[in-house]
Amino acid sequence: MQNFKCIVITLLRTSRSKFYVLSSMFFFLSSLAMAQEIRAPHVVLGNSFFEKLNPNAAEWNQISEQIIQMLPQNITTPSIFKTTVSQLKVKALHNNKWVAARLEWEDKTRDANVSLDHASDACAIQFPLKEMDKTSPFMGGKDFPVEIIHWKAIWQQDIEDHYQTVKDLYPNTYFETYQFGIQAATQVKNPISEPARKTPVEELVAAGFGTLTHQSVEDSFAWGSWENGKWTVVLAHKMTTRDPNDPVLKAGKNSLIAFAIWEGSSKNVGARKNYAPWIPLVLEAKK
């Protein structure tokens, strides 16, 4: 209930109108009706399982699945008012060193490019860094930050195939004076513009809307697979790290997890996303 109170207060503080508060509360309450928890059993697995993730690995077959209803993000602007991905299937497991969440959702199109007309499919999981009951699921708050682990289809394509060029989307493009060109964002090492990406995942920390910040030290892996109109993405994170901006996750101790899904062909990007607020994450102790 503490958690619920906190979210309502956050809503009242951050929303721009009563309409937002009421509609968000409705969605929140309807999501509570699902009131599930995600159980991550302890499984004896080598670290390589987490460091070389395979979304279709047989180990996942024994893990029970939770179905989570997604909500359209309209707590803050810019928003969407209708989900573009309505359901998310989640499995989780851990080996005391690593925790992994396997996200599965229906998406008829595999979108792994960006331009004005294209956005990449993507997903993210979020953990509170401090007191769980005081942390807003909406990007955290000033003294209660969150950590976000973000995977994008285009980042995986950067690694599997090559870094996107204009000709990938517009093959007949002709240009003859590239020699003068500068790529400012690449030169200033914006992580979004990394031409030699090594991982399709990015760790971020946030303490409220507009504060999302890249973390240079990464203790995460992720890998996705799109088959037959369905994305399956596994995101793994070390349970304890030395990084103060990482959550401390311990077997036998509950945490919270939140989810976000972006559907590229619906131009979902940034705040225009589907989300599920905090859901209890039960990290089961070794039996």
Partner: peptide
């Protein structure tokens, strides 16, 4: 250019369409 994450909200908002999206730097 260190903070932009390519959401394109600025491209959409500018009444004069003088913010552009670079699909290579994203």
């Amino acid at each position: 250019q260190t903070r932009c994450r390519g959401y394109k909200e600025c491209v959409k908002a500018c009444p004069y369409k003088k913010v552009f999206f670079n699909m290579v730097t994203r």
